[in-house]
Design a binder for these strands. Structure first.
Length: 569
RNA sequence: GCCCCCGUAGCUCAACAGGAUAGAGCACCGGAUUUCUAAUCCGGUGGUUGCUGGUUCAAGUCCAGCCGGGGGUACCA
């Protein structure tokens, strides 16, 4: 446990003994101004009403108790402003943090906030009816980053892709392939897929000799799914499970759900279709489950699918959908409630062991990943799926690279529209946040290379290109301390990202940390005595240690977003 | 009509469970380099946080109502 957590726990204990209360929420925060010390606590103001005392009086009481309790590593505690209690830690605080970063390495920043709860992150789940395009790219980038973040935050994460390998759209895929097999200039159905890839599949189908609709559908799904998997793999997006909709039908799980609804009188016939009373659970209107022709509407297998997720023991179900699924959220929740799901907010899911199995609470969080606009030369690139003139994920990867693409997709709040400026993403300058952050990392790597060349670093102190020598922590100066203070915020940002299901906090943090290191590095320009590779050996070693720590934290952050940390630029 | 997202510096965006003086980058102006890689850094100009009320010791943040922009609203998925 680090100092911040230790102090937080101690403060909660003090509150219990002083006022017999439990303080909820965050207790210690980074102050807005370095003059306010290392941590600030605004609890006195929040407690004023409850305790019926002025905030300043509460703050004084708390500060006195802190002094008497003898908090470890505490240098100073004082009351300020309207009722803040500001804490300043002794130098050991950052010394220990530095040691922790270097010893924990790739694990530094990991949190236990998830408490091992089982989370299923289902994302992308594109229909195998065509190649992935950039909207899928954003979903995949956000989903995969989120999975990394939740894993790092202490959840047990499973990443899943749901394959819509049956139903109307697959029917259309089959027809499209058969159409391309014929001489017809126009498709038999206006919803047919017109992309050139259909022609390739048609050609392959012809070669196979099986030219019926079933054969076309099967080959189409198989081919396109393979393509999707390859795109995702190259985009560094990985999955633990691939669940097929068709398999849900074949196992009877879909019929089971329909029977459940029917037998409990939750459905009724209308115009030949079967409707579920979703308005009983908050939907704006009842929704059909079975069409008049007897086939299922996609939402029915979807409900069966989510029931299956639950049955597999997941406690938090996270779905990433496109914004066109907006209305589906209320319907799905209604369906799940009709299936007797005990839906609760994510923060309220407790460990499964404490709950009765049948009423085990489960969180269902849908993230609508907004579309993005592609800009080139400041002009929006219009996309039209019908004319098959949309930009594929593959094209994007080839044009701007996986790293820049993933950083761009991750850096904006997923629910907000994103302008993806292709020119900026390709630029190798400060404008491009990926290159900016990467440059800081590359600079640390380069210092090590340069140090070895100039014999300022002994080869024995370098492992895999990373400096791992001994250092004197007491030589940490103000500039190094400022850097370490930013570095230790990593876990905080990770936890916020996990709580809000938003990787943008990590992206934003990477900019902050890399910027801090750039500034630190530049100190050596006008004043060579401030270079990392300075002449004084003990100082040099300490600066190398601090640089290696920043390098490590940058790497950990990059990994959360699925990015490579460049070693040379 | 109903639902969701967004209105913060000229532009693109931050602001971490409501907290101390609303911050970055771009652009503009002025500086730093015979480089531990300038793909960089430092300083400056620039704000009635769309509007009006409300809650609160405290509101960019929460609530209500407007105004403006985007998206969604199938027996497609």
């Amino acid at each position: 446990m680090d100092l911040e957590h230790a102090w937080s726990a101690a403060l909660r204990t003090l509150a219990r003994t002083l006022w017999q209360i439990e303080i909820e929420g965050t207790l210690l925060e980074p102050p807005t101004d370095p003059r306010f010390g290392d941590f600030t606590c605004n609890a006195p103001m929040r407690l004023a009403k409850q305790l019926r005392k002025p905030p300043r009086a509460i703050a004084e009481e708390l500060a006195r108790a802190v002094r008497n309790a003898g908090f470890p590593r505490l240098a100073k505690v004082e009351v300020a402003g309207a009722g803040f209690v500001n804490f300043t830690a002794g130098p050991e605080f950052l010394q220990e943090e530095l040691a922790r970063i270097l010893s924990e390495g790739a694990r530094y920043g990991r949190s236990t906030m998830g408490g091992g709860r089982k989370v299923l992150v289902e994302h992308c789940s594109a229909n195998p009816t065509g190649p992935l395009h950039i909207a899928h790219g954003r979903q995949a980038a956000v989903g995969d980053s989120l999975a990394h973040i939740l894993d790092f935050a202490g959840y047990r994460v499973e990443r899943e892709f749901y394959i819509n390998d049956t139903g109307n759209q697959i029917e259309m895929l089959g027809k499209s392939i058969l159409w391309r097999l014929s001489d017809a200039a126009e498709p038999p159905d206006e919803n047919c897929y017109r992309g050139d890839y259909i022609k390739d599949i048609a050609a392959e189908l012809r070669a196979s000799g099986r030219t019926d609709l079933e054969g076309a559908k099967r080959l189409g799904v198989e081919r396109l799914l393979r393509e999707i998997k390859r795109d995702l793999e190259d985009f560094r997006v990985s999955y633990d499970t691939w669940t097929s909709e068709d398999s849900l039908h074949k196992s009877g799980k879909v019929d089971e759900v329909l029977n459940f609804f029917n037998s409990w009188g939750l459905t009724y016939p209308k115009d030949g279709a079967t409707y579920l009373k979703t308005t009983d659970h908050g939907d704006v209107e009842d929704k059909p489950l079975v069409k008049a022709d007897g086939t299922f509407v996609y939402r029915l297998p979807d409900m069966a699918y989510h029931r299956d997720k639950y049955a597999r023991g997941h406690e938090i179900l996270i779905d990433l959908w496109g914004p066109d699924h907006h209305a589906h959220i209320a319907t799905m929740k209604a369906g799940m409630k009709a299936l007797n799901f005990n839906l609760v907010p994510m923060a309220e899911v407790r460990s499964a062991s404490t709950a009765v199995p049948e009423q085990r609470p489960v969180a269902f969080e849908v993230l609508l990943i907004q579309y993005c606009r592609l800009l080139r030369g400041g002009v929006e690139q219009k996309m039209s799926k019908r004319a098959a003139s949309y930009v594929t994920l593959r094209e994007l990867m080839e044009e701007v690279g996986v790293d820049a693409a993933r950083f761009f997709f991750a850096m904006r709040k997923p629910s907000a529209h994103l302008d993806f400026d292709l020119d900026v993403a390709k630029q190798q300058s400060k404008d491009n946040p990926y290159y900016y952050a990467g440059y800081a990392h590359a600079r640390v790597c380069n210092i090590t290379v340069k140090g070895l060349e100039d014999k300022k670093i002994a080869p024995a102190d370098v492992t895999d290109g990373v400096w791992r020598g001994a250092y004197d922590a007491s030589r940490i100066g103000p500039d190094e301390a400022a850097l370490l203070k930013v570095a230790r915020q990593f876990q905080r940002h990770l936890e916020i990202a996990a709580r809000d299901l938003d990787p943008a906090f990590v992206a934003e943090y990477l900019r902050e940390l890399s910027g801090a290191y750039q500034s630190y590095y530049e100190l050596g320009k006008p004043d060579p005595g401030k270079k990392v590779l300075c002449d004084d050996e003990p100082t040099r070693r300490t600066r190398l240690a601090v640089s290696a720590a920043v390098q490590q934290v940058l790497r950990n952050g990059f990994a959360l977003l699925g990015l490579h940390a460049p070693e040379k630029m």
